[in-house]
Nucleic acid binder design. Structure first.
Length: 498
RNA sequence: GGGCCAUUAGCUCAAUUGGCAGAGCAACGGACUCUUAAUCCGGAGGUUGAAGGUUCGACUCCUUCAUGGCCCA
């Protein structure tokens, strides 16, 4: 990362040039130009016309864009300008513009934003082009853009100066368009099923709904500690108590943990809850949701992620948690079912084991190490141990497991869902277990949430709920190897002053 | 937290064994009315991420630090 830009004479050159233009009466940052059409609309309508047909089009188009390339020939110049919708070639001629105006054009730089007015024609090579009748400077650019052919490659620079990345790298623009499209489709999908979008607190007195370390903050006027939420779950379920039967929230969660290609401290989560449903209903809904997205965005349910062919065509594989330890993890019940043996295995695999960790916790570690990376095709893993699922409903036949599943695709957790625990007496006991774990040193254990228990005492209808990590979903559908590729402004340490 | 790697002109990249820091694009001056990574001519542009050290001599070797990437915890 270069930090000597402050000394760059290229920038100084541009500042000087701009000052000179201003002295001559040219406005560098006017706001009176109004574009009338997007480049894409021009191209869609006229690009297929022949030269002769185009000549009959006498329309004058008024458009604006950033100058991305200039090819100059003395008294005539080709350039490309880019707006939000695409690029188009524009042709400036001294003959058309007059000597003074053409001279003014020659002073412009790549990166400047201009407004142009002109008619369409086709060049000898067949490219649809605007023959500029008039133009004006709309915004002066005082910094040079990266090289036209290679663009901006340095990943650090791409994240720090995302604005430049978006100007010069079409692929970056596309990823964020897809992200927005996914969010829109998810909302449409849920709205159509009668869900109601809600907003619940991001600042919470008791951070709940997940096992994770929270960020702490402080409210001055109230004189109290607050936490940034790690999940919206407990508030969304309070809304089920309140009678909103089907709710969802798409918003940021914050977890005070390490940063990796899979983790950003703030990330976007979809959580949705529906009354009168169980986790099997969510399996159906999840398959429908993912395949709907795939068809809309990629046109197929067979997708490629980082060289893996992944088939999202329902129905997907289903395995119980313990089956997966056996069939995929290659363990026997006597291995994962015995505390000492499980502990040894985890240690052999290079993970630390803390004294307070329960057998169920060790089993999830074994799962993370031996099973999860192998779940490339979509897999629902269900019936997680009750101990590691403090908010999930117990299975009717076997109370030591819960009616919960996680969805894995490409070796990653994509969703977590369960039939909701709505017995306040059991919920209270589970919180108490968590509090005990916390006292033993498990920082990620849940806090006691008395108000949540009180809410359940009023009666929460039987329900099922699910959380889907949006960033990972976008990674999957844009074939992105790192979460930073799908977050506009990923968290970075501050750079040195220029 | 640990390991490995990277950091050279605005951008993309070179620099042999430790021996004169270069190129393309961009920018600057000039020629040029159908180019599209335009072409041609000319000149310029550097605290080699930072601070130390070794050496006659450091982009290159050593130490520390910063930022980032990948892997592991």
């Amino acid at each position: 990362m270069s930090t000597n830009e402050g000394r760059s004479n290229l920038i100084k050159q541009r500042y000087d040039k701009a000052a000179l233009m201003e002295k001559e009466g040219i406005k560098l940052f006017p706001n009176n130009f109004r574009k009338q059409i997007d480049i894409k609309d021009i191209k869609e309508k006229y690009a297929d016309l022949s030269s002769e047909e185009l000549e009959k089009v006498q329309d004058v188009f008024v458009l604006a864009g950033r100058i991305m390339a200039i090819r100059s020939f003395g008294k005539a110049t080709f350039a490309h300008i880019q707006d939000r919708s695409g690029k188009i070639q524009v042709f400036f001629q001294q003959k058309e513009l007059g000597k003074d105006k053409y001279k003014f054009f020659k002073k412009l730089d790549i990166g400047d934003i201009i407004g142009v007015k002109g008619k369409l024609f086709k060049t000898k090579t067949g490219e649809i082009t605007i023959n500029v009748m008039d133009f004006e400077l709309v915004t002066k650019s005082l910094r040079p853009l990266p090289e036209k052919f290679h663009g901006l490659k340095d990943v650090e620079a791409r994240y720090r100066k995302r604005y430049v990345d978006l100007i010069v790298n079409p692929k970056a623009r596309e990823i964020f368009r897809v992200r927005t499209r996914i969010l829109k489709l998810l909302r449409e999908f849920l709205d159509k099923k009668g869900f109601m979008e809600v907003e619940t607190p991001m600042m919470q007195v008791i951070p709940g709904g997940a096992t994770a370390r929270p960020f702490e903050t402080y409210h001055n006027a109230l004189g109290m500690k607050l936490y940034l939420r790690i999940a919206p779950e407990l508030y969304l379920k309070r809304l089920l108590v309140g009678g909103f039967e089907k709710v969802y929230e798409i918003n940021r969660n914050f977890r005070n943990e390490g940063i990796s290609t899979q983790h950003n401290p703030e990330f976007t989560m979809l959580e949705f809850y529906m009354a009168y449903a169980d986790y099997n209903d969510l399996i159906e809904m999840t398959q429908e949701m993912f395949s709907t997205l795939a068809k809309d965005i990629l046109g197929t349910t067979k997708i490629t992620y980082q060289d893996n062919e992944i088939d999202l065509t329902p129905p997907w594989n289903k395995l119980s948690f313990y089956e997966s330890l056996e069939k995929i993890g290659g363990l026997s019940a006597s291995q994962y079912g015995d505390y000492e043996k499980a502990k040894e295995l985890v240690k052999e695999l290079g993970e630390n084991v803390k004294d307070y960790e329960t057998l169920a916790k060790l089993q999830t570690k074994l799962f993370d190490l031996l099973v999860e990376p192998k779940l490339i095709q979509p897999h629902f893993i269900y019936h997680y141990p009750t101990e590691v699922s403090p908010l999930s409903r117990r299975n009717e036949e076997n109370p030591s497991i819960t009616d919960r599943f996680e969805l894995f695709i490409a070796g990653r957790e994509m969703a977590n869902a369960f039939s909701e625990l709505n017995d306040p007496r059991d919920q209270k006991k589970r919180f108490e277990e968590q509090v005990k774990e916390k006292a033993q040193g498990e920082e990620e254990a849940h806090f006691m949430d008395e108000d949540y228990v009180r809410a359940l005492e009023y009666g929460m209808p039987p329900a099922a709920g699910e959380g889907i990590g949006i960033d990972r979903l976008v990674m999957l559908f844009t074939d992105s190897p790192s979460i930073r590729e799908v977050i506009l402004f990923p968290l970075l340490k501050p750079e040195k002053k220029e």
